[in-house]
Design a binder for these strands. Structure first.
Lengths: 209, 209
DNA sequence: TTTAATATGTGACATACGTAACAAAAAATG
DNA sequence: CATTTTTTGTTACGTATGTCACATATTAAA
């Protein structure tokens, strides 16, 4: 099995490889990828080895071949449809985000309770949550981006799950409590900033001051 | 030492505790926190134990006390100033974000190359990057949120580091290559969506189809 | 064609991490 | 006041994760 930690590393390799490819390179080495990603060359080789990806004993790895293998894991061949719920500050930013296609994803619809949001021009159709089930069924959506205010996040998340959503990318700054089969990935700016400061050693707390 | 994984757990505890507190509870148990966070009760007790936090053998833990201890680690007593670079879609959303204060952080300024951005009404002053050093020095800023387009991310990040920034919360979908002493935390919506789908088993790749 | 150089692939090892088991303390009960 | 119940605190253990060392393949050079 492929662990969460390993998955994250593989994603990092992919980003690094895309960068190297853009620079015009055709092949690379565990050593170079280590430079790019900060991951040790041995671990990189081991990761590739586990996936059955093989390089040449002196010639390194083919970038294109590596990307193909990783694409088999992450980049879906069939486009995956996702929906966005909540068109506040963050939601509006995400609806105009342009990198979906690059990852073979497609934002098919957005939802908001505020009817005025439906008037404005967005690059995807905007509905109320009443239409969720319909969209989920029609576009075979299993993942939603949740960008509603904190106070309604749990309630909305429940509703999403009731209507067939199995994965949630949660931007609301709360811990969602959902059935075990539902996967939640949290993106919380404050939490990230805090951890950044924590590891920088910025801890002017009561005792130290 | 306190590891990255443990740090993430502690942050999760804090979120859960805030929720329980809001519900009016005064004390809690490793078992209840496990319910909230999905982390095993044994590990929760161990984490607390390592931090020197002690409960009562049958009465559980005081929520307020726990939060105080965690605040000593994460919630800085002295407000920490951060800056935001890039006022595109995501940057504009983050400048209007309201949770900074809650984490004892303060967004002191935003930066953008586009002069028209400086005309619009934002809740913080907007400068060009020429003024960065000035702001960094005046407000003792060490962490920046980077929300510029992909093509200028690396260049901008370099500039930030040259001007005293030691930690970057990077929203640009690229792997930044920076000196070892600089800490980078990436937030990449596509990467998160991909991992979510990966773990959901959504892998309609060439072989399987 | 031999030798040297370089980079992979992998098995052994060390460390980190989380789980399980259980003793000790505190509260509730009879 | 003794006993039972509950929940913590900690030690021992097993698994996962990453590093180290080195044999092996490939290319370049002499």
């Amino acid at each position: 099995m492929i662990s969460n930690l390993q998955t994250r590393r593989l994603q990092k390799y992919r980003m690094a490889l895309l960068r190297l490819k853009k620079m015009g390179l055709k092949k690379t080495f565990s050593h170079s990828l280590s430079d790019e990603t900060g991951i040790s060359p041995e671990l990189i080789r081991k990761d590739f080895s586990i996936l059955g990806i093989r390089g040449k004993r002196r010639g390194g790895y083919e970038i294109e071949g590596l990307l193909d293998e990783l694409k088999k894991l992450f980049g879906r061949v069939k486009e995956q449809n996702v929906v966005l719920v909540g068109l506040g500050n963050i939601g509006s930013a995400l609806v105009n985000y342009e990198n979906y296609r690059q990852s073979n994803m497609h934002l098919v619809a957005a939802f908001d309770i505020d009817p005025s949001k439906r008037q404005r021009k967005y690059p995807v159709p905007v509905y109320t949550l009443d239409n969720l089930r319909e969209v989920v069924d029609a576009f075979e959506v299993s993942v939603a981006i949740l960008a509603v205010p904190e106070f309604s996040a749990q309630e909305t998340a429940n509703y999403l799950v009731e209507n067939g959503i199995r994965g949630i990318l949660n931007f609301a700054p709360v811990l969602l409590k959902l059935p075990g089969h539902v996967l939640v990935n949290n993106i919380n700016v404050m939490i990230e900033l805090e951890r950044l400061m924590f590891h920088l050693g910025i801890r002017q707390n009561a005792e130290l001051v």
